[in-house]
């Protein structure tokens, strides 16, 4: 099923659907930070408290999708390079958009970002001290839970990290802009009669995702330079987090 050139496209499309869906759910979850510390912490805690098989099942599933998507992309790109060993003296593009031409570049950026992001906020090896951010705000009982709110604000308090996040989200939007409608094409459910609308929907989706993810680091950064006051920085559990 998946060995032919089309089979590989099906892998890209099917894993693509999962990841397209995932980024939306993830973004929707993230945006709860705008509702305040309690909302985001409660949400994060609820996710963390999911039963083991569901929590780890989803995590493994997502990682497998990412790996399959990236690995297949590498195989495809290698095959594609071999298929056109001699470049044109003049390389002209008539219809293809920048996003579609740069899927490899945006993909690599995203892969690097995902690794960094996991190390930064999930596994927390970059700033191990984030582990110590505990609070009762948002806790379903009186027990202490991880203070995701403070971690995020602390995380984006580093300008370079915020910039990296925003750049990565622009890559993501490019990747999605082509990937979204490409999924339909690869699975054979796109047609040119509504394809234009689909492309627009893809772009709208891509930019919404980009905006949704970027808004938090942008707000934190603006606040850092004192232009606005939005987040309740006073609630930071540990001053250490501000380093």
């Amino acid at each position: 099923m998946f060995t032919s050139s089309l089979g590989k496209k099906y892998i890209m499309a099917l894993t693509g659907i999962v990841l397209i869906g995932f980024v939306f759910v993830h973004m929707a979850g993230n945006l709860q930070i705008l509702l305040g510390q309690e909302a985001i912490n409660a949400y994060a805690h609820a996710l963390q408290s999911l039963p083991m098989p569901i929590l780890w099942g989803s995590r493994v599933f997502l990682i497998v999708c990412v790996i399959l998507h990236a690995w297949t992309a590498v195989v495809l790109i290698r095959e594609n390079r071999a298929a056109r060993p001699h470049a044109n003296e003049i390389e002209v593009t008539k219809r293809a958009g920048l996003a579609s031409l740069k899927m490899g570049f945006s993909g690599i950026t995203l892969l690097l970002f995902i690794v960094f992001h996991l190390l930064h906020f999930t596994i927390r090896t970059i700033y191990p001290e984030y582990d110590d951010l505990m609070t009762t705000v948002g806790s379903p009982n009186e027990g202490e839970i991880h203070d995701v709110y403070s971690m995020v604000l602390a995380g984006f308090n580093h300008l370079w990290i915020s910039i990296f996040y925003v750049v990565a989200m622009f890559s993501l939007s490019g990747h999605l802009a082509h990937g979204f409608s490409s999924v339909f094409q690869s699975l054979g459910i796109r047609s040119e009669s509504w394809g234009k609308k689909l492309d627009l929907a893809g772009k709208a989706y891509a930019w919404s995702i980009c905006l949704g993810f970027s808004i938090v680091p942008v707000l934190v950064t603006i606040e850092k330079f004192g232009f606005i006051t939005f987040f309740e920085t006073s609630t930071y559990s540990f001053p250490v987090a501000l380093n």
């Binding site: 032919s4 594609n80 071999a82 593009t93 293809a96 579609s100 409608s181 094409q185």
Partner: peptide
Amino acid sequence: VSAMDGAGFGNCRNYGECSAA
């Protein structure tokens, strides 16, 4: 499709350049 793959063509990336040309 199998003959196409065997002939050494690359993979479709849904650019649309083909249709434009």
